[in-house]
Amino acid sequence: MASDSPNPNDRPKASWLQIFLIGRNPKVTAIRLLVTAGLVVGYFRWMALPIQVTGISMEPTYHDGQRTSVSRLSLRLHPPVRGDVMAIRTTGFHNLLLKRIIALPGERVHIRRGQVFINGEPLDEPYLIKKAPWNWPRDLEDELIGPDEFLVIGDNRGMPQDRHEFGIAKRERLVGRANR
């Protein structure tokens, strides 16, 4: 005896356009799309930012035109320490400064003839190739780094001091650690 109930296999066949645009099962495709979009946005927003280095202030560690990424997750997991190369935001994320952390909150720092002194002790900086005779601050007094601040400088200390952007960055401006 033949049954009158419809066979689930008798569903109308999906057209090639539908299969091409949204697959055989639209719900599954929509979920896949949402999950993929969420993962991509989440990865680039909270984990890693792709960047291209412009300029020579981080030579020899980073070169003009070099492509790398900034790990935002790493900054969330581990607080910034001396020697970290950090990306520092401007008003947004389109333009970031890449600098190395030299002094931490609460430290007293000055630079004399290119040598950095932290709390009166000279700082060993193996990543530098050349030191131009920088002096900072100009008044020859120690600068006290505030509670949520870091002194950041590029690795190219052979540059003239007045052509090199460096200074004190607020903690809120740190975006993430730069990868090599």
Partner: peptide
Amino acid sequence: ELNTVKTLRR
């Protein structure tokens, strides 16, 4: 008014 703003304080 238009002012430059320093990203890093010196």
